[in-house]
Design a protein around this nucleic acid. Structure first.
Lengths: 270, 270
DNA sequence: CTCGATTATTGATGCAGATTAATAAGCCGG
DNA sequence: CCGGCTTATTAATCTGCATCAATAATCGAG
């Protein structure tokens, strides 16, 4: 067996005119209904695309930011470097994810974000996006939903780190990455290209590299996965999910806008 | 030395007519400017207050919820029970916090929330709150800010669990709780009533009860804190913050609403 | 005030996973 | 296609913290 190396997955460019291959718009549409007028307004606040090279930092801990970037292509990791030299990756970012949550909402960034592969981003200023939200509240509601989902997924990570064994964490990480990649068309039914090095994954899982390696070896020895280069295939995805108590995330829609003043006016404080 | 027990802090009821002693409104006002018309609309969606007894579950993992509850009084913990019987507390809730993030935004709750003391809540339905957001977008923006802040604080917890030592975690926990209580007037400059049992804290920090106890003992032995009953006093808050690399959170304001269509209309995709 | 239940404290033992080190394998720039 | 650098793999040792166990303190209900 050999390495798990970062790799830029080869995507068939769908060559569709504007939005359909845009993972961020897809993400928004998962939460709210967007008409063409909405899309037009959204386009108006998005500045030109921005390319970022592998290993560049998009966000540096401690600095101020006022931009939102939507990942069109490529992978990144949000992390914190500690004084003792250790690093904790708090999550990995895939196409459709938003850079700038939470950095741009805070006085100063509390985490760094680094590009793991070459990336393509769509950038807009937070102020412009907020202005858009004032005009079209569905965007702020969609952003709420995205932020809440982000919070929920961090909370799950807390459980991972606090109370789950190393093998569970590794299995859950693979399943989680697979399901997120599948959601944006970057994975097959049972496999995907893992764009992360073992060092990155060990920093994400709070393990040492040797131990992570051992757990990956064990998963293969147990006939649950195969690894060929950077390609991961699930042999028994069910057993893997069972072993690690993994359940994929369920999203919900923002409740649609109702009439102007809702019935609650009938109720009030006692 | 003796126990750290849950306790209902005695608050001087300020006896102010409506909102000024309301920690949730205070929380909203930290992010957005609210006029009296806004407050009136907010009041309209809030149903009657709701009292909850100590040890009752407010949210149960796996069930569906569509309510937001704002904590007026009392403490709670958000947690997950694992198959092996272990529990991970992902955060503790204090007055001003929102129950229902993320539970009510998901298909089914992924965490439980339990009352640690008797509580008083203000409840409203998510649908009504969303309707309010459509009418007054500043509420959805404030909710975004709150959700993002929640995400940022979970992310910090991930770092805690993944890469920080047990003594750092304990010190940081105490400092964090103190700063959150101080923000809603439940703490003095250098001390506070700790309403949590050691079992709860160990589940929050991913430690065993004996080990947490040992670390608390060590903090006292090192002359950093005193504990008398449920009362914690910082002797050297600076040293404590240094030791644990603690930095309090900085909030930001939502950028104020600008004119109707912003200047960005001048820019568009290349 | 008393009893039972919860919570805190302390000690002894074991193991999961860190640490360190050393080698091999693959990748990239020239 | 070569040499340096990054990444993966494997092994040996060490340790922080879990686990188990037992007692003491405290709380709260009656």
């Amino acid at each position: 067996m050999h390495g798990l190396v970062r790799a830029i997955p080869k995507i068939e460019p769908k060559a569709q005119p504007c939005w359909c291959d845009d993972p961020f718009v897809a993400r928004l549409k998962a939460h709210v209904d967007l008409g063409s007028a909405d899309l037009h307004s959204l386009r108006a606040v998005i500045e030109n695309d921005h390319a970022v090279k592998k290993r560049r930092d998009l966000v540096i801990d401690g600095y101020q930011y006022r931009k939102l970037s939507f990942i069109k292509e490529g992978f990144a990791a949000r992390y914190k470097l500690l004084r003792n030299g250790k690093r904790q990756v708090v999550n990995v970012l895939v196409p459709g994810d938003v850079v700038g949550v939470p950095s741009s909402f805070l006085d100063r960034a509390t985490f760094s974000v680094t590009a793991i592969t070459d990336m393509k981003l769509q950038v807009c200023s937070l102020d412009d996006f907020v202005a858009l939200c004032h005009r079209r509240p569905k965007f702020s509601l969609a952003l709420c939903w995205i932020a809440v989902q982000e919070a929920a997924s961090y909370a799950e990570r807390v459980v991972d780190m606090g109370r789950r064994t190393s093998i569970e964490r590794v299995a859950r990480f693979l399943l989680d990455v697979h399901s997120r990649l599948a959601m944006v068309g970057r994975a097959t039914e049972s496999g995907f290209d893992l764009p992360f090095s073992q060092e990155l994954m060990s920093d994400a899982l709070g393990l040492s590299v040797p131990h992570l390696n051992r757990m990956l070896t064990k998963l293969r020895a147990d006939g649950l996965i195969t690894i060929d280069g950077h390609r991961v295939e699930f042999i028994d995805q069910n057993a893997l999910a069972m072993l690690s108590h993994f359940q994929p995330f369920k999203l919900t829609q923002v409740p649609p806008a109702t009439g102007l003043e809702p019935s609650v006016l009938l109720r009030h404080q006692t």
